[in-house]
Design a protein around this nucleic acid. Structure first.
Lengths: 183, 183
DNA sequence: GTCTATAATTTGATAGAC
DNA sequence: GTCTATCAAATTATAGAC
């Protein structure tokens, strides 16, 4: 993958996480990294090509980070903490929501391939989380619990960003940890 | 409030809940209700005027609905159910997320007055919810619990809409009810 | 791979007639 | 209060030179 492609995706990720898909233009991204918009089109012919590539890179990065951290401990509680921490750092380090909170909210207004990539991101995250939940639960129950944890995190990111209050995210997460701690 | 103003706001609500603030244009709203975009500008000179008016109308409507339903019972569990039902119906009836999930995600890319109106919506909802939580808890603890419930609902709406799976919303809500039921 | 140049469309917004 | 007409700017996207 070329250096320019990564620069474009970096710029696109920052912009789309802050303002959404439709509020980001090829020209803006090009200006950000010091090239022309036609050069961006060389790498991503259409905007949805950029959107899909962005989500796929983001998704891979998040899952790799989750797997890396979960190798540090096999304890389910530690792994839940790792999951939460990955999301927390995404909020704190970038001062913006998860890419897929934004694109998930906008999904009905996105090209189908972009919207599907967002759905895949959620499925993958739910699957990851479901795997660390107690095997005493049914597969469906684990999936539902996993979806519940993810929904709370995503909602908490969105509200904390809107209210400009990271402490609110932490307070919500504290309850989440307590509720899902396994003994 | 004139009939046209309401028609514009109706069209704007449907469009912005589906696709977001930046993906909605004056011309589109005008076409929807059979007038010209300059007539929309007569009622809302700038786009942020429209945004603020839309959120304020939405916020009043949601809070009125919450209050109306909560008059049916003084039982805290019933009132929590009423809160959840209001959000569930918003999802099911319109097949789209809460206006403030969308605008909350986009908030960093919105004009300040619009972004502030979204924040006010969340504050009002958190306040409403906090009021039905056990008075044995501290004020801060109630606020945090209320924010947690709201975050889960908003996140669940967003994910259910993206995955086109209302059942997922229901499954998440089932856990939420169980976790917050007072005996 | 990046550039200049440009096409075709859409956008938010305004002036002024009725 | 709605219209016609229009503007300046921005948007996605393409053709073709280097």
């Amino acid at each position: 993958m070329s250096a320019t492609v990564d620069k474009v995706l970096d710029a696109a990720e920052g912009a789309m996480r802050a303002r959404g898909y439709h509020a980001v233009s090829f020209r803006e991204l090009a200006d950000d990294i010091g090239i022309k918009s036609s050069s961006v089109h060389y790498h991503f012919p259409q905007k949805d090509d950029l959107g899909v590539a962005l989500i796929e890179r983001y998704s891979k990065r998040v899952l790799a980070e989750l797997n890396r951290r979960s190798e540090e401990s096999k304890n389910p509680n530690d792994r839940l903490d790792a999951f939460i921490d990955v999301y927390r750092e995404a909020l704190v380090n970038t001062d913006s929501v998860c890419l897929c909170v934004m694109l998930g909210a906008e999904s009905r207004g996105l090209p189908d391939n972009v919207s599907n990539a967002v759905a895949d991101f959620f499925d993958a995250n739910i699957g990851w989380l479901a795997n660390i939940l107690p095997t005493t639960l049914s597969k469906k129950a684990r999936r539902n619990k996993a979806a519940s944890v993810l929904a709370t995190l995503q909602g908490a990111m969105m509200m904390a960003a809107t209210l400009k209050d990271t402490g609110l995210f932490d307070a919500i997460v504290k309850e989440l940890r307590a509720a899902h701690r396994q003994s």
